[in-house]
């Protein structure tokens, strides 16, 4: 009875409070109005964002010709993919250890992983800068990737660990009873079972890496700007019409990915 009534009240929704409804509408407006403003001005033929000079796609042409932005985009892709692969591998192994074993020093690992997620980015950034300088590693793409792996491992570990904890061990035991060794058990039974979480962790890591500004800012050095760094250097001194166009492209791309992704996800859930 209570299950039925609760599901009804949830599916119909309560009679919407007008005030709440209005407030939520305003909040979505707050979330999207700034984005809409950027999109609007990306088609402005004038360089300024103080007036409308007529419709134009000139900033999109300028964007396509901008070698700095394209190179920064490639760098971001490389850093994102490489650091995601390394962080996902390391983070998944750590998740298995922390979910499955009880050992001395476990709380030390737990708190290190937790500290890594909550440490202010600026502290992580300057400490890595000081470290790389102290050990004479030149700043560049390598140091960016190293830093991104370091801040992404905990996120992968946390996501994968929660899945491993909820895993039914009897399947793995069955595989081992049937003569599978530890490595083949891992590859043929455990890994497929935790794979959705591994993918979720990897997607999170890639997103965080692709968008990271603060830590990258300190470990990038000269001439290895990632996309967020490049955008920052362009808007540091004020409005940039090319960045308006670039922002529009990025936001539309995110919307398409989210839309397609959620369709696939929902279809799978229904199946």
């Amino acid at each position: 009875m209570s299950i039925k009534s609760s599901s009804i009240s949830r599916s119909l929704g309560r009679v919407p409070d007008r005030a709440l409804f209005a407030l939520v509408g305003l909040l979505y407006l707050f979330l999207y109005a700034p984005i809409a403003v950027l999109m609007f001005f990306s088609f402005n033929s004038a360089k300024s964002t103080e007036f409308w000079g007529g419709f134009s796609t000139r900033w999109y042409s300028a964007l396509l010709m901008d070698q700095d932005i394209l190179h920064a985009f490639y760098r971001s892709l490389i850093v994102g993919v490489v650091s995601t692969i390394i962080a996902t591998a390391i983070g998944t192994l750590a998740a298995l250890a922390l979910a499955r074993y009880r050992f001395r020093g476990k709380s030390f690992y737990d708190s290190t992983i937790y500290a890594d997620t909550v440490m202010p980015e600026i502290v992580v950034g300057i400490s890595l800068l000081a470290f790389f300088v102290a050990v004479h590693v030149p700043l560049g793409l390598t140091t960016i990737i190293i830093a991104h792996v370091a801040f992404n491992i905990p996120f992968v570990t946390i996501v994968v660990r929660s899945r491993v904890v909820g895993l039914d061990r009897s399947l793995e035991e069955a595989a081992q009873d049937l003569g599978a060794g530890p490595i083949s058990t891992f590859l043929r039974v455990t890994l497929p079972l935790i794979f959705p979480a591994v993918i979720a962790g990897a997607l999170l890591a890639f997103t965080l890496s692709f968008d990271d500004f603060v830590i990258t800012f300190f470990v990038a050095g000269v001439g290895s700007n990632t996309l967020p760094l490049e955008i920052y250097s362009m808007v540091k001194l004020g409005v940039s019409p090319v960045v308006n166009a670039l922002s529009t492209v990025i936001i539309i791309a995110v919307m398409v990915v989210v839309f397609v992704g959620s369709r696939i996800f929902m279809r799978k859930e229904r199946a």
């Binding site: 955008i231 922002s247 919307m255 989210v258 959620s262």
Partner: peptide
């Protein structure tokens, strides 16, 4: 998902949008 989309776009862009809105004789 609608709340998440601005979050998945870049942080710098989100801040920059306010530069455009608030700057000079802007919107």
């Amino acid at each position: 998902l609608l709340v998440m989309i601005p979050f998945w776009s870049s942080l710098i862009i989100r801040v920059y949008a306010w530069v455009v809105i608030l700057s000079g004789n802007g919107i």
